[in-house]
Simulated scan of single mutants.
Amino acid sequence: MANGQPHIIVFANEKGGTGKSTTAVHTAIALAALGHSVGMIDLDPRQRTVTRYMENRAETMRRRGIALPMPDYTVLRGDTIDALEEETAMVGAGKDFLIIDTPGRDDVFARHIAAYANTLVTPMNDSFVDFDLIGQVDSETFKVKRLSFYADLMFETRKARAKVDGVSIDWVVLRNRVQHHDARNKKRVGEALMELSRRVGFRVIPGLSERVVFRELFPSGLTLLDKGHLGDLGISHIAARQELREMVAGFALPMVADSDAEPKDVA
């Protein structure tokens, strides 16, 4: 925690279905498992995916009589920017990390809170449908033609933040649901992302593959790090857990990047 303030990680993408809430929850639990104090705010009071996940986790702990790593969490309870800032200050007080999950749509609160991020994470599925959110490509060459509205918005947000307090927002594009069997599409999307990253200044890191286990874990609120409470794990589950560890390492977060620690399995 620098200067008494938490490191704020905002998960944001105006397109739904990119695994945003899943990666936000797993990141929060991974950091809590490392011993960090973690706060979490769900900015989607209508869908409440993160809130429901945490409620399911709390119920599993109560029902089984177990203790699991758990962030302090809340759902946005106001409808003004002032309410959002009050909630952020309250939940983030005394925390090492504050994780904020935003709705998968254009949202005034999501735009506002992005400017407060230290790390801004944009998960996207590995396809040109999702790529279109940040850039448009030529239909023949797949070269980037221009930035899309969202990339322009984040570029201006980062520039404004640097001008106000000198903080450089680390923008990370997370490649979720990479299709390993479609090597040509994977290569084309990867090349387009690298080209766009040089223009805009975001980093690209691998995220989580498409796996049924993530949907299966939601009702219990468990994560892939809760090894001792998941039963027998198959090879695909073990591979998914390694992906999670690599994803968290890829964020290069303070207090995590400066140590040799990595999220441990919960016995």
Rank of each mutant, 00 (worst) to 15 (best):
N3E: 14
Q5C: 01
P6L: 02
P6D: 05
H7Y: 15
V10Q: 03
F11V: 06
A12D: 13
K15G: 02
T18W: 00
T18N: 02
S21D: 04
T23F: 10
A28M: 11
I29Y: 04
L31D: 10
H36L: 14
S37V: 10
V38R: 02
G39I: 12
M40G: 07
L43K: 07
R46G: 05
R46W: 01
Q47L: 01
R48A: 09
Y53D: 03
A58I: 10
R64G: 07
I66R: 05
I66Y: 06
A67R: 10
L76V: 09
G78Q: 09
D79E: 12
D79P: 00
E85M: 15
A93C: 02
D96T: 13
D96G: 12
F97A: 08
L98R: 05
I99S: 11
P103Q: 13
D106A: 10
D106P: 01
V108W: 06
R111S: 07
R111F: 06
A115M: 02
Y116W: 04
A117C: 07
N118E: 10
N118I: 04
T119L: 03
T122A: 00
M124C: 05
N125G: 02
F131Q: 09
F131A: 10
I134L: 03
Q136V: 09
V137E: 01
D138R: 02
F142S: 12
K145M: 14
L147F: 14
F149S: 14
A151R: 09
M154N: 07
R158I: 12
R158K: 15
A162V: 13
A162Q: 15
V164G: 04
V164D: 15
G166T: 13
V167E: 13
S168Y: 08
I169L: 09
V173M: 05
L174N: 04
R177I: 00
Q179Y: 06
H181V: 13
D182E: 06
A183H: 10
A183F: 08
R184M: 08
K186N: 11
K186V: 11
K186S: 13
R188H: 07
R188I: 03
A192R: 01
L193P: 00
F202D: 03
G207L: 05
V213D: 04
R215M: 05
E216T: 02
E216H: 09
F218L: 05
P219I: 03
G221Q: 02
D226V: 04
D226E: 07
G231M: 07
D232H: 14
I235T: 13
I235M: 14
I238D: 11
M247A: 12
V248Q: 05
A249S: 12
G250L: 04
F251D: 11
P254I: 03
V256Y: 12
S259L: 06
P263K: 14
P263M: 13
P263A: 13
D265Y: 05
V266C: 00
V266N: 00
A267Y: 00
A267S: 12
